[in-house]
Design a protein around this nucleic acid. Structure first.
Lengths: 257, 257
DNA sequence: CGCGCAGTTGAGAACACTCAAATACTGTGG
DNA sequence: CCACAGTATTTGAGTGTTCTCAACTGCGCG
């Protein structure tokens, strides 16, 4: 215990100033002098174990959240009890501000694995934002970014066939890996087939079949949840049928931040 | 010319303080004393004729926009030149802040009929927001609202069959009519079948066929673009298969604000 | 070692799509 | 005011992607 942050990804960071993800996160909006102020709005919790909820649909909105390590899915449950997976969040990605509007969360957030989260008091963040115009602007940009991602996802889901959606999903994950300096061609899916299918609006059997086909065509290798992308170029050609915008921070081509 | 605002819906308003849509719009965020400040960030233009663009995909982002009268669609065009209709906007509804993130618009906005628009300088609005915390909060809420709408739309598009999507679309329009004190059961579609189909992610023939079926079942009457909803209760039963959130301001059940 | 969950594979059915043609509207000019 | 061109909408027939149901395999954990 008490290892340095870089040695133990689950260690609680002392401060935003020392966070390795700072270049992708709130500190980006602040000058060096302002960085200390961020720590006044951010809280830390011990890691969440797999399947644990960070917040629940309908619960009061107090905070936004940033994934520090691990991954998270957000889920909406309707009156019939049917689940809809709304998105997946990887380290440095922020979620929870869907709750601002109604002052309560419209979905639940659930850890997909052992996951560390920074909690950002929204009330305090808002107050700080009135004093730091660059922070205010950064927040508007983040929310606008989320809008862009959702619009792109809408396009994706309503215009593309099952195969294109799956390829887009994998390439999105790949790009988000890259943004964090991880391999864009080798990674582990932290969600199961059912979550992927639900997120992409198709049957889980379809996901399975299409992944098998892509593997047969040697475009990728997938064993369980381990993915190795063999032919990024060809896959990109499938995908680039649609995309030309929203690459501002080299994140989230489709899917969620 | 120079008629009072209520007599001529296309007359340029003198100020937000006198706008009939104030209870649904920015003035809602301001105290009486602050109302005057709003006028410093808002500009007016002569009405846009049908099919005219309010802004174009890729153009620099300067303003957000509110529909004062008429209606607007937003459209994304991909590399192949295929269009995707992203949303429809009715009076009091705000659009354009998808452009904040990249500082340029990621879609085009096009008037569907003769339409009056209020232009809100975003730079000025941001500056004003640092001085009026309630305005800042209102903006966060509006953007969060847009997120809610898009997430709901995502759910709708990926979980529901064609018939349910069309019913949801009509009921959404109906609810938005209500919010402006117009009849929820009789209204005119300002977009063509192709736009509806594109927005809902289906073929226009499917829209046509399903509307014919709903008419045959006496749930509604539709002649061209004139809609009369006969059996709101039954239609709602179809739709309420899914919804229980996002009714905060009694607007946009699906579709866009 | 076996139970349970996750994932794969197969067969048949259904919904929505495409192509094609007919009909109804809209706006314009004579 | 009517005729006409062009567009919008409806309707039909056949096809295809994806879904559902069902059985089977593999993996992890107690």
């Amino acid at each position: 215990m008490d290892m340095t942050e870089s040695a133990n990804p689950f260690a609680l960071p002392r401060s935003c100033s020392h966070c390795r993800l700072g270049h992708l996160c709130l500190p980006r909006a602040c000058s060096f002098q302002e960085l200390g102020l961020l720590d006044t709005v951010i809280g830390y919790q011990p890691p969440y174990p797999p399947k644990q909820r960070i917040f629940s649909q309908g619960s009061p909105f107090h905070s936004c959240y940033v994934v520090k390590s691990g991954s998270v899915k957000t889920v909406y449950v309707n009156e019939q009890g049917e689940e809809k997976v709304l998105g997946f969040y990887l380290p440095s990605e922020m979620f929870g501000f869907e709750g601002i509007f109604q002052d309560s969360h419209t979905c639940s957030a659930i850890a997909l694995e052992r996951t560390t989260i920074c909690h950002i008091s929204f009330r305090n963040l808002e107050q700080l934002a009135t004093q730091l115009p660059s922070l205010q602007h950064w927040m508007f940009r983040m929310m606008s970014h989320e809008l862009n991602i959702l619009e792109q996802l809408n396009r994706w889901l309503s215009q593309n066939c099952a195969e294109e959606r799956i390829i887009g999903f994998l390439l999105d994950l790949s790009a988000r890996q890259s943004a964090r300096n991880l391999s864009p061609t080798r990674f582990r899916l932290t969600m199961n087939r059912s979550d992927i299918a639900n997120f992409l609006g198709m049957a889980l059997e379809t996901v399975s079949r299409i992944l098998a086909r892509l593997q047969r065509d040697r475009l990728l290798d997938i064993r369980g949840r381990e993915v190795i992308i063999n032919d990024l170029a060809t896959l990109n050609r499938f995908k680039s049928m649609d995309d030309n915008a929203n690459d501002g921070l080299n994140r989230h081509l489709i899917g969620r931040g």
